[in-house]
Amino acid sequence: MARNVTTAKRVGWSIAAWFVALLIFFPILWTVITSFKSEGAAIAFPPVFFDFDWTLSSYVEVQERSDYLLHVWNSAVISLGSTFIALLISIPAAWSMAFNPTKRTKDILMWMLSTKMLPAVAVLVPFYLAYKNLGLLDTKLGLIIILTMMNLPILIWMLFSYFKEIPGEILEACRMDGATLGQEIVYILTPMAVPGIASTLLLNIIMAWNEAFWTLNISASQAAPLSAFIASYSSPEGLFWAKLSAASTLAIAPILIMGWFSQKQLVRGLTFGAVK
């Protein structure tokens, strides 16, 4: 709807939009600001916004007190690991359904999505017990398995929607040109699907990074990723707001930045291509 409007109108709309946007963003901004405060300044009332002594001491303390880096490592291993495995399983499946659809393809896709409807809590108990017996409680492997399976349907849907946009004629042309199935995947399909695969990957990492049901219930200390680690600040001693803010900032920063870069694909991805 790019139309000519008067500057006054434009300024008016801009002010309104920026005001609302900053309002929504405020808790994040506030967290970041607070992370640079001393504990005293953090709970000052009325709150101070910029006029305080900026310090990095909270960041130092967070690392010293709770081995922050271990949890970052856990988060990274779990989210990257589960995403990578899920991609390996879902790319062939999405390829298969996008380029060789059968009468049942739609039903299979819907069924896959329906497994997401199964509330995690319903299967918490068997998982907890099985993991306890298998020694998978509080292990990264245990979480990777769960997150892989949990996000698999969404991954397949996303990849499916991206693959479907690659015209079948191109793959046929390449078959006519004498390429084998392997060559077709290496030379044609993969390069063409890279943008789709990349944004799927990014989104899945975000979802896995932020997952907070299984991580809270299945991991305790050793394998706890950031989402579970941060929750430990909910105890009353968590009133150390500067440290809480520093830990939070560190936990969300990488994902926030990733998210900013992938926000355009995010819409497509999370709506399975239904909204572009």
Binding site: I170, E172, C174, M176, G178, Y187
Partner: peptide, 15 residues
């Protein structure tokens, strides 16, 4: 690939 034919598609199907 084994038929020795070449095809030009409606959408051109260029890579």
């Amino acid at each position: 690939a084994k038929r020795g034919l070449a095809m030009v598609f409606q959408s051109y199907a260029l890579y």
